[in-house]
């Protein structure tokens, strides 16, 4: 072996070693961050099966010998998880459906069609993005009361759709503006009306947008609590996150049950997430990325 090749070999070795080291460091960092995201959840779970008195022990993480599964039973029954879950779903399903269809139509009309008021409408849409929910709470309360939307799921659905209009329209508009006009033009030539063109030609081209928008709308409204808290008063209409807060008051002296309730409330989106994680991973941002 000549000196030259030896040198090259050594260089490669050095480089490879350097690469290995940086790879290990990288791995450590990645795992550390993963732990940061996961550990609190595991910790919360461990508390949920203890007795409240155990919480004050010095150990970091321990699983009790006699897990108090009864905490879950208490949380499930007294927290009325099933009832609130079905309420949440009956609000969230229409919100997600209309929260995607309406912005899609709006974005189509504003990006691809010609009309006078277009700039004004688009400004309203952009402005909608900046309005804080909290500004609208009291005026809406007063005026929903007048038009009979108060303490009804419909009132919440309308708010949820309204507050997803802006963001979702922007995402759709980004996607739609990239489609060549010839798509519609050729369809027009064949005499196809809009009600055929939109669902069968345009919508499929924006399919990534639909999944992005639907998932985002779902996650946002699943978490929503301040509007639900303000507008709903009848106990039987309440939604899931809201119930957690009430539950805290009810069980203010039983931390372990509170933790169990917390786990139960967190569970449904987590299950959905794991079931569809690959789709969510690509779908959640696809629309925004192209936009």
């Amino acid at each position: 072996m000549s000196n030259d090749t030896n040198l090259i070999y050594k260089d490669n070795l050095k480089e490879r070693r350097k690469k290995n080291i940086s790879k290990t460091i990288l791995m450590i960092v990645l795992v550390f961050i993963a732990l940061l995201q996961l550990f609190p959840l595991v910790w919360a779970f461990s508390y949920s099966i203890k007795t409240s008195g155990d919480l004050f022990g010095p150990e970091l993480l321990s699983f009790p010998k006699n897990p108090q599964w009864v905490n879950y039973k208490t949380a499930f029954v007294d927290g009325k998880i099933l009832k609130y879950l079905s309420n949440t779903l009956s609000i969230i399903i229409p919100s997600v459906i209309f929260g995607t269809i309406l912005p899609f139509s709006l974005a189509y009309a504003t990006t691809r069609m010609e009309w006078k008021l277009k700039p004004l409408v688009w400004t309203v849409v952009i402005a909608g993005l900046t309005v804080p929910i909290h500004t609208t709470l009291l005026p809406n309360f007063i005026w929903f009361n007048k038009i009979g939307l108060l303490d009804s799921h419909l009132g919440l659905i309308i708010c949820y759709i309204a507050f997803s209009m802006s963001f979702n329209s922007i995402i759709f508009s980004g996607l739609l503006s990239g489609i060549p006009k010839s798509m519609e033009e050729s369809a027009f030539l064949e005499g196809a009306p809009y009600r055929v063109i939109l669902p069968s030609i345009i919508a499929p081209m924006a399919v990534t947008g639909f999944s992005t928008v639907a998932i985002q709308t779902f996650l946002n409204h699943w978490n929503e609590f301040i509007m639900a808290n303000t507008y709903l008063s009848t106990e039987s209409k309440r939604t899931l996150p809201f119930s957690l807060i009430l539950f805290d008051g009810q069980y203010s002296s039983n931390y372990a049950v509170q933790f169990a309730c917390m786990v139960l409330v967190a569970l449904p989106p987590l299950i959905l997430y794991f079931a569809f994680s690959s789709k969510i991973m690509t779908g959640v941002t696809a629309g925004a990325v192209k936009g």
Binding site: S90, F98, H153, L154, I157, S236, K237
Partner: peptide
């Protein structure tokens, strides 16, 4: 129709 269905659905759960 969808909107009214939704509202009926929503109201259906009230006592």
């Amino acid at each position: 129709i969808m909107l009214s269905l939704t509202s009926a659905f929503a109201q259906g759960s009230s006592e």
